[in-house]
């Protein structure tokens, strides 16, 4: 089985001509761009804060997967919503070691998911930077974000390190099972 985005596509083959859109969001410094590079199997070297957005497209088996990585700085957050139309899946990235900002990131997520275009869209939370000793465990983050109040969509929290790659593939497996069950 392949890695990252390609592995999602490989599982979905047999339904060519489809295009899927995944949006990657989270506060600045959460690790979105690092994660995106990891998913696209690119070597992770120096990464600068994202101004505007990055898009990665992966094409295979007549299938196209677009991942949008939108910068997390406070000044661009009001624009997040603009890019949400026809999102199939939302990935929300958290810096698990930045406990001071759990409330803020929880609030951003809550405000974001109130958007109509995200109603019912499955949510994968990557509890990133688990390689740091100060990282909070996934269950604690789930509580911090009040994920249990999200009743209108399926959600999953995946502990990972975008830097080492650990846990990233497990998250992708969840994504492909979500997309698969929605495809019918």
């Amino acid at each position: 089985m392949g890695e990252g985005l390609l592995s999602v596509i490989q599982r979905l083959r047999g339904s060519p001509g489809q295009e899927l859109r995944i949006v990657l969001l989270g506060l600045d410094n959460a690790g979105k761009t690092t994660l995106l590079k990891r998913l696209a199997s690119e070597e992770v070297t120096t990464i600068t804060p994202t101004q505007g957005f990055n898009i990665k497209s992966v094409h295979s088996h007549g299938f196209k997967l677009n991942v949008w990585d939108i910068g997390g700085q406070r000044s661009v957050r009001p624009y997040w919503r603009k890019y949400l139309g026809s999102t199939d899946l939302l990935i929300y990235v958290i810096d698990s070691a930045d406990q001071k900002r759990f409330e803020e990131t929880g609030q951003e997520l809550a405000e974001l998911t109130e958007d109509e275009s995200l109603t019912g869209v499955p949510l994968l939370v990557f509890a990133n930077k688990q390689d740091l000793v100060t990282a909070a465990p996934a269950a604690e983050i789930a509580e911090g974000l009040s994920l249990h109040t999200y009743r209108d969509r399926e959600w999953q929290i995946q502990a990972c390190s975008a830097l080492s790659g650990e846990g990233v593939q497990d998250g992708m497996n969840w994504i492909s099972s979500q997309i698969m069950s929605r495809k019918k």
Binding site: A138, L147, E154, W155, Q156, I157, W174, S181, K184
Partner: peptide, 21 residues
């Protein structure tokens, strides 16, 4: 969803670390 499973083996479920309904 009979039939949806297709060629996906039943051994192939990711652990739930979250919520679905």
């Amino acid at each position: 969803e009979p039939g949806v499973m297709g060629d996906e083996s039943p051994e192939d479920v990711a652990p739930t670390v979250g919520f679905s309904k």
